[in-house]
Design a protein around this nucleic acid. Structure first.
Lengths: 191, 191
DNA sequence: TTTTGACCAATTTGGTTATTTGGTCAATTC
DNA sequence: GAATTGACCAAATAACCAAATTGGTCAAAA
């Protein structure tokens, strides 16, 4: 038995949320699509928000796994940082629900979505922090305040996401990242 | 006579827009607050959007002036860049309408606000580009692609704005900027 | 232990009417 | 004639309300 009922619900909900968004997807639809009664859903989940959280968690686990995998495969801290930046950005747009929930759907700003957003923001900072830490330990990076540095990097990344929301013609994302990295490593100043 | 009627309208509208936002402020209110008839407003402005644009322009001129002033006062390109980053960020939050229009009010996403947003985004990029250009000419900076570099810097700045919208406890903004700058100048790598 | 569907309170929807809004303009004032 | 006015209008919005839908419950059944 590879799929428990709870997983089935999450899978179905994932598809529907992706298509219609959180608000427009109804529990009845989910139940119907999953060929179970509505009551069954509430046997496994406490609320609609709970289901959504489960979907987001699933997508985030996938993203997190992929990102960590790519980071581990890279050998130097520089490569790790680059691998992280490129992968996280490319992969993020594939996580339909995660992405739209944290960007578009926040028009409605549900409190629970805000919380999820914060949690993942912190998670990203932790990932970057770990990379920087390794770099410092290996004597490759020179960073005084790890936490702040990680914060600034992640915040800057968010900034790179922003323009394409605004439909400003944006230079190719990967090029921008490579550029940001090159500058980060070597600095602006002429040697 | 130091205030033309058009200026009076803009001043009154500025106050009201700041308090109630674009949508909730009515032409009747503006007319009433300015002690003139509604028709008079349309003698000077073509539409409500026009008035709003005028308010935004006024605030932007102020901001722009302040920023350029501070930049000119600084002597080295490094100082100019720092002066720009700090001033632009600190000052931006004072421009009530400008700020809220380009952040909160975009929930409604009026096309004309999107356009203004884009224009100011480009304006910021130009300012940064000019600073970088000077730095390169003086042989202080080493930047290959000026446009892209300026874009990345401004985008990163937007990223630093983002967290306090999300109410994530954010490290002090000035500290972050100094940090970002130090890193930008010297790079992450150990020498 | 799981599953069900009738059931309920609360919210959302669709349709209608009343009010307000942005914008016009002929008449009036300066 | 440039500037100002307020009554006026079509269109948008708010207010209202009944009907439908929604998230969530629960006693009964499997």
């Amino acid at each position: 038995m590879k799929n428990s009922k709870a997983e089935l619900i999450v899978d179905v909900a994932q598809r529907l949320f992706a298509k219609y968004g959180f608000k427009k997807t109804t529990i009845d639809e989910i139940a119907h699509s999953a060929h179970i009664a509505k009551g069954s859903i509430y046997y496994y989940f406490g609320s609609k928000e709970d289901i959504f959280r489960a979907v987001l968690d699933k997508e985030n686990r996938l993203w997190s796994q992929k990102v960590r995998e790519v980071i581990n495969r890279a050998s130097t801290p520089q490569e790790k940082l680059r691998a992280y930046l490129v992968t996280r950005t490319k992969y993020l747009s594939k996580l339909t629900n995660f992405y739209s929930a944290l960007r578009e759907e926040y028009l409605e700003h549900y409190a629970f979505i805000e919380n999820i957003r914060k949690r993942y923001f912190r998670e990203e900072i932790e990932i970057v922090k770990a990379i920087l830490e390794e770099g410092v330990k290996k004597g490759i990076f020179k960073v005084e305040e790890l936490g702040l540095m990680a914060f600034v990097i992640v915040a800057a990344l968010k900034g790179l996401e922003y323009p394409w929301t605004m439909e400003i013609p944006m230079p190719d994302i990967e090029k921008s990242i490579d550029f940001l990295l090159k500058m980060s490593f070597n600095g602006l100043l002429k040697k």
